[in-house]
Design a protein around this nucleic acid. Structure first.
Length: 490
RNA sequence: CGGGAUAUAGCGUAGUCCGGUUAUCGCGCCUGCUUUGGGAGCAGGAGGGCGCCAGUUCGAAUCUGGCUAUCCCGACCA
């Protein structure tokens, strides 16, 4: 059968959407801009959640849950915050429907208008800080290190599966601290957690840095971020951590009594990653054969496909393979044994490649005779026939190798599309090729916006590890002390 | 909200310019037999009235008007 999507479309986004659909991850919902995450896709998200949650707990955080609805007045308490989100809010104005007068259905009951409209949270800073006000009186109540797993709604003009949906799942951490230093350190620490997760669980290399003032979160003093590079040369913001200063504490009157018996405003951070990470995962590793998943996040780590001459042989193969499955499970691996008779082996091979299963084992009559099996790794599609003896140990090592290889491959790719650019001519031609451009920038928002206007490139971040280096702004020629990271982004 | 495009079976599509028997083909689905080491073969079968509304006409998937939805490009954004 002809492969019907894998010839990479001219249009990368078409390829991506096809890939998502074919890999059984998600589909568009009947609700505009919303996404149905299918069981296989959700299984990946659950693995991400679990890993992240463990990392949050290990850094002393606890989970809580806050309301979906935010009174309109709360949102407007912090000026920058409301300005940033006002244009994309879903608003609840009524609480009841009634039969329409002409009998053709139901209409909103005009009698049932809310006194104050409710906003479906686009993020929870406001509702949480209105709550923290009640939780905090003295320095003894600090710090508060809370996280919530939730859904949020941002009414985006244009949506895209996993990368920008109207409703999305995420976690948002909201912490409260007694000192500026402690809050800043917290924001930086959580960014490290995200970078660690991206690289060691997702095999997605990221660049850590700070956003330019223009790209800052609405209401933040500083926004730290991790930036990833997708295979089509576009950058993707994969996670953010904000140092909020005392902005929200002031907006919601959250003060604490310090050791000197004086009232002080609380210092805040917030940080979040979303189902967008799944978009990053897909766009970083996938190839024309389908999804490629890092072993640590793959819902199925090993797929075993028995091959037999006829139906009656299957019980014999089942018996032969049962101990192998057992050994693999003993190692804590997730194994899918697919002995369905209605699909042929070739079909199954393709199916598990679509789904990104890291390792596939095939065992047939020939192997039964020889005591062997065929092991195929998804990242390189390399096939090796080897003894069944010790297969569990081998697979365990292979999975680790694949996990590392994916990161290495992605990092090599990123290196190959990252270059230093020093002139405006070069910038305009190089940006067309995609990738990261490391350039000097004069530090002004005017220049940044002008560059965006002319080239669609934005400053992804000012990398933490950018060395001090004298140079001239790639656009204005004004002096600069370090290079910043430019790219076209999702 | 501006520019462009599309809407025919569960999915992907032909037909639309130039109206005319029973709306095309592929995948998938159902039945049977043969198959099973890279998406099996053959035979038979089920399923749609062409996004919605109105109009023109003896006759509309096809022409006209309106509406809706989706996709792409902008503006906006994690």
């Amino acid at each position: 059968m002809a492969k019907d999507f894998v010839t990479r479309a001219e249009n990368y986004s078409e390829w991506y959407n096809q890939l998502v659909v074919r890999a059984d991850l998600a589909e568009n919902s009947a609700v505009r801009g919303c996404m149905v995450i299918k069981p296989y896709g959700y299984a990946i998200w659950e693995k991400m959640q679990r890993a992240l949650d463990d990392m949050f707990k290990a850094t002393g955080h606890v989970n809580a849950y806050f309301p979906l609805f935010i009174p309109k007045s709360f949102l407007s308490r912090e000026a920058d915050h409301v300005e940033g989100f006002a244009k994309e809010c879903a608003v609840v104005t009524h609480y009841r429907l009634k039969n329409s007068p002409d009998g053709t259905g139901v209409v909103v009951d005009p009698e049932a208008e809310l006194e104050e409209p409710l906003i479906v949270r686009p993020t929870s800073e406001t509702i949480i800080w209105s709550t923290y006000k009640n939780w905090i009186q003295s320095y003894r109540d600090l710090p508060i290190l809370c996280n919530q797993w939730a859904n949020v709604v941002r009414w985006e003009m244009r949506t895209r599966m996993f990368l920008r949906t109207a409703e999305f799942l995420w976690q948002e951490g909201h912490t409260a601290h007694a000192t500026r230093e402690e809050a800043e350190a917290e924001a930086r620490r959580m960014l490290e957690v995200y970078a660690d997760f991206a690289e060691n669980w997702m095999s997605v290399p990221v660049i850590k840095g700070v956003k330019s003032p223009n790209e800052r979160f609405a209401g933040a003093i500083d926004t730290y971020c991790i930036e990833a590079m997708m295979q089509d040369g576009k950058a993707l913001q994969a996670g953010t951590s904000h140092f909020l200063g005392q902005n929200f504490a002031k907006a919601f009157e959250v003060q604490f009594l310090n050791k000197e018996n004086r009232n002080e405003y609380v210092w805040a951070t917030s940080w979040g990653v979303s189902t967008r990470l799944m978009g990053a995962l897909i766009m970083t590793h996938s190839d024309d054969n389908g999804l490629v998943l890092p072993p640590k996040l793959a819902p199925i780590q090993v797929a075993i496909v028995p091959i037999c001459k006829n139906d009656s042989q299957m019980p014999e193969l089942d018996a032969h393979i049962a101990p192998v499955i057992e050994q693999l499970k003993q190692k804590g691996l997730t194994v899918k044994y697919d002995n369905r008779l209605e699909y042929k082996p070739g079909w199954k091979f393709n199916e598990y490649e679509f789904k990104g299963v890291p390792v596939r084992i095939a065992i047939g009559p020939r192997d039964m005779e020889n005591g062997t099996c065929e092991v195929c790794r998804r990242d390189t599609l390399e096939k090796v026939t080897m003894p069944l003896e010790g297969i569990a140990e081998h697979v365990e090592q292979l999975l680790e190798e694949i996990q590392k290889n994916l990161l290495r491959k992605a990092a090599d790719y990123r290196t190959s599309v990252t270059r230093k650019v020093d002139s405006w001519d070069e910038f305009t031609s190089e940006i067309e090729k995609g990738g990261f451009l490391l350039c000097h920038w004069d530090g002004t928002t005017e220049t940044e916006e002008r560059i965006k206007e002319l080239t669609k490139a934005t400053i992804r971040c000012i990398p933490f590890d950018a060395p001090e280096e004298e140079g001239k702004c790639v656009y204005s020629g004004k002096p600069s002390h370090r290079r910043v990271l430019f790219a076209r982004a999702y």
